[in-house]
Design a protein around this nucleic acid. Structure first.
Lengths: 351, 351
DNA sequence: TAATATTGCTAACACGTTTTAGTAAAACGA
DNA sequence: TCGTTTTACTAAAACGTGTTAGCAATATTA
């Protein structure tokens, strides 16, 4: 069943026609006239023999692999911290399957110097790439794009033309911080999700600054802190924050995963959330709603991010339509309890 | 750079040799004598032209794709709940990369009737598969294995011969329950990670029963409850458990993710952990140590599970060595605070 | 020196598909 | 009836590799 390789030749012999005819029938090749009788014979023979065309052979003659690569550009030991990753992947691979593509997954550390992405194209392992979390100054990606390699980013880089599927990080952060401001907070600290060499971190910081500005609150550098996607970094950051001269009444943490470590540190120090300090997260990972207290956060449509990226890429590959503009998906403010219990009504309606 | 396809022919022309010679040199083909001079010319030309052999062409002539498939057999909307998935994938794809393989990721729902796995082989999309979370009675997998398809399982199925890379779920559950027993608990409830059609759930339940038995505690069906990998299922389960006639003093929850929902429900009901009830988890997801209270649990070597599965599969593919026996990895009891604070010393040394 | 063995390479086939060019047979037009 | 068009197919080329068989030129042996 697996062992005996059935080729188009076998089908041709069984149906009493040529190999070309088999190909025409099975691919419904346009402009080729096949009598109903012959067509039926071929289809029956193919069915009978359980014929499936060989991917490599087709790939070679077509000059296409029907494979898209999903590359994550993160420290390998921190990639797992991104709990939405599997959702994104599910979006990609379901969209891919709908168009008879497959997805290969490849983690490539930021400091990788071996041109792994370029090699994927040179060896024709993939037709195109979706690159998640590119560094702001990723020269290899720019070079590939300029050499006409189909690439969709998740996140932005300093080179503007490369199509991207992303959320509006700045606006989402504004939304989050505005929520805190509306609750009366003025000393609001910012704890980043990752280093500022990632666009998502930079944009969330920008959103934070803009929200403060619009509310007439002065930006204070001493209230800005940095995480690295892990709960541990949040745990550590809280200790630093508590030692700083200014005591914030709220912290906007640009990652639920980091926020988790913060909640833990606050719990250990007997600092109550939200009574003593308000905590606003970002991402809405599947656990956020079950934390103590349930975390107010920004929901990212992770599945849709993957799905859209894959569909855009496949349109590019199949129809040569290079996406004209970035695809920006909407985020949603999820109000739970970590910023104040007086919001309980909203919380219930949001689950 | 991407656009102009450089073939072995180009290298041959540049080096002034035949195409065969190029192939012999670049592959270090055994038994072929090439003078140092010629070898150098070829290598230089290949370097100069930045030649990379075409994957499809090589694949066709070799009859191998150099691709392994990673299939997760779970409800798609619950797959994301497995927070260790990305760790497993990292293990697989790093092991694969070490041997010049790639990994394609494919979620296939349990109720899928389209023979997706078989098709992967028939179309020669993959050389072999790693199947995570197979259902106990998965006939397609049995058929494939009997047709000599290289398959490694993560989890077991009712058909015994298929090689598997897994943890000893029974023993790990015993360890967890013994810990509770040693702390003096006698009314210990069991909350499963998933339906018993998954081997992991079944084996963890068995371990639970055996630990009770060895301690001379009677097994009570009314203390057994079921989760479905999600925090929500844990949240719901707590309500059921609290309504049951027997009030357990401890719960062994066979999934940290499910346990998270439990903690949330207990918190809402003002039931203190571990003072009022002890909670033992399973998995050691990256967040467990930061929960309130930090969760005692069983650590699964997720990266190693992926890494070993991939290496076993690749050995099978490259050297035709069918793994003789299952690969069972060790788990570790992680004692934190959710089963009792008097264990604080151990906790500090474990974290 | 003649027969044989070794060295270092090339020509040609095979893998399984898609697709272009071509060709008999049938149908049509005048 | 003869030339032309249409129909329904086939033969063969092409994709880029790996590999087997073979073949000159040189080195070795007797």
């Amino acid at each position: 069943m697996i062992n005996k390789r059935i080729t188009a030749k076998d089908v041709a012999n069984a149906a009493g026609v040529s190999r070309s005819t088999v190909s025409f029938v099975l691919n419904n090749t346009e402009g080729m006239r096949i009598s109903d009788e012959t067509r039926k014979k071929v289809l029956e023979a193919a069915e009978e023999l359980n014929y499936h065309p060989d991917a490599s052979a087709r790939s070679m003659v077509k000059g296409k692999t029907y494979i898209i690569g999903f590359v994550i550009r993160q420290e390998p030991d921190k990639a797992y911290a991104d709990l939405l990753l599997s959702e994104v992947m599910r979006g990609i691979s379901e969209a891919a399957a709908d168009h008879n593509y497959h997805m290969i997954f490849k983690p490539v550390p930021p400091e990788d110097e071996s041109n792994s992405l370029t090699t994927l194209f040179l060896e024709h392992q993939v037709d195109g790439l979706i690159v998640s979390g590119p560094l702001a100054n990723d020269q290899e990606i720019v070079d590939l794009f300029n050499a006409n390699a189909p690439i969709i980013l998740q996140g932005r880089i300093d080179y503007p033309d490369i199509p991207s599927v992303d959320i509006n990080n700045r606006k989402a952060a504004e939304k989050a911080v505005n929520h805190l401001i509306n609750l009366g907070h003025k000393e609001i600290a910012f704890l980043s999700n990752a280093s500022l060499s990632y666009s998502s971190s930079k944009d969330r910081l920008t959103g934070y600054r803009r929200a403060l500005e619009q509310a007439g609150i002065a930006y204070n550098e001493n209230l800005v802190f940095f995480g690295d996607r892990t709960p541990d970094s949040g745990y550590q950051a809280i200790k630093t924050i508590l030692q700083s001269p200014i005591k914030p009444s709220a912290i906007f943490i640009a990652s639920d995963t980091v926020a988790l470590g913060c909640l833990n540190a606050l719990y250990e120090k007997n600092i109550r959330v939200p009574e003593d300090i308000a905590i606003m997260g970002f991402d809405d990972i599947p656990l956020s709603k079950h934390l103590a207290p349930p975390l107010s956060t920004i929901r990212i449509p992770a599945y849709e991010l993957g799905w859209n990226a894959a569909n855009l890429l496949i349109k590019w590959l199949d129809k040569k339509e290079i996406p004209g503009q970035d695809c920006i998906l909407e985020t949603e403010l999820i109000v739970r309890e970590s910023c104040g219990l007086h919001q309980k009504k909203k919380k219930e309606q949001n689950n």
